[in-house]
Simulated scan of single mutants.
Amino acid sequence: MRQISNYVYCDDFIAELRYETRLMANPYYDYPYLIIENFLSEEACAEIAAYTHDKSEGERAKVKKNFHGVVVPELEEDIRKTAIHELPEILLEGYKLSFAYYQKQIEDYFSVALTTATEVQALEYTRGGFYIKHADDSNELVNCEGETVGFAQVAPERKITTVLFATSHRDNGGDGLQFGGGELVFNYLYDAENRPVRFRPKAGDMVIFPSNPIYSHEVLPVSDGYRLTLVQWHDAIIS
Rank of each mutant, 00 (worst) to 15 (best):
Ala135Phe: 06
Ala135Ile: 08
Asp78Thr: 15
Glu119Ser: 15
Arg2Tyr: 15
Gly128Asp: 09
Leu177Thr: 06
Ala135Gln: 05
Glu16Thr: 07
Ala61Ile: 11
Val149Leu: 05
Ser98Tyr: 10
Asn187His: 13
Leu17Gly: 00
Met1Gly: 12
Gly150His: 04
Thr229Lys: 11
Gly174Leu: 05
Glu183Ser: 09
Ala117Leu: 06
Ile84Glu: 14
Gly225Pro: 05
Leu97Lys: 15
Ala83Ser: 12
Leu97Glu: 15
Ile35Ser: 12
Ala25Glu: 10
Tyr188Pro: 06
Gln153Arg: 12
Tyr9Glu: 13
Val185Arg: 07
Ile106Tyr: 02
Pro73Ile: 06
Lys202Ser: 07
Tyr125Cys: 03
Phe110Ser: 02
Val185Lys: 09
Asn139Lys: 01
Val112Lys: 06
Glu107Thr: 00
His85Leu: 07
Thr118Ile: 06
Glu218Ser: 11
Ile48Lys: 04
Asn212Ala: 02
Pro156Arg: 06
Ile132Arg: 09
Ala236Lys: 00
Ile4Phe: 04
Val231Phe: 06
Asp137Pro: 09
Phe186Tyr: 07
Pro32Cys: 12
Arg200Gln: 09
Pro73Asn: 15
Ala117Gly: 12
Leu114Asp: 00
Phe39Trp: 05
Asp108Lys: 13
His169Arg: 01
Val63Ile: 12
Pro213Asp: 08
Arg127Tyr: 01
Ala49Leu: 02
Gly94Glu: 09
Asp205Ile: 03
Gly94Trp: 00
Val71His: 00
His85Tyr: 02
Val112Glu: 05
Gln153Met: 15
Arg158Tyr: 08
Trp233Thr: 08
Tyr125Ile: 04
Pro32Asn: 12
Lys55Glu: 15
Arg227Thr: 08
Thr82Val: 03
Thr118Cys: 11
Lys64Glu: 15
Cys10Val: 09
Val154Pro: 00
Glu59Lys: 13
Tyr29Gly: 00
Phe209Pro: 09
Arg170Thr: 08
Thr148Asn: 09
Phe13Val: 08
Leu141Pro: 07
Tyr188Phe: 13
Pro156Asp: 04
Trp233Leu: 06
Ile36His: 06
Asp136Trp: 00
Val112His: 05
Ala166Lys: 06
Glu145Leu: 15
Val70Thr: 14
Leu164Arg: 01
Leu123Phe: 01
Glu47Pro: 04
Glu57Ser: 15
Glu74Asp: 04
Leu97Phe: 03
Tyr101Met: 07
Ile214Trp: 03
Glu47Phe: 08
Ala203Ile: 00
Tyr226Gly: 01
Pro213Ser: 10
Glu145Met: 11
Leu23Asp: 01
Ala117Ser: 15
Phe67His: 12
Ile132Thr: 14
Arg227Leu: 06
Asp108Met: 13
Ala203Gln: 04
Gln121Ser: 07
His68Arg: 10
Ala152Gly: 05
Tyr31Lys: 08
Lys202Glu: 13
Glu74Gly: 01
Glu89Lys: 11
Ala192Cys: 11
Ala15Asp: 14
Tyr188Gly: 00
Gly128Leu: 08
Glu37Asn: 13
Leu17Val: 07
Ser138Cys: 06
Thr116Phe: 05
Asp11Pro: 08
Asp54Asn: 15
Glu57Ala: 11
Ala152Met: 09
Tyr101Gln: 14
Glu119Trp: 10
Ile4Tyr: 09
Ala166Ile: 04
Glu20Phe: 11
Pro201Gly: 03
Glu16Val: 08
Thr82Met: 10
Ile90Trp: 10
Tyr9Thr: 13
Ala135Val: 08
Glu147Cys: 11
Val197Arg: 02
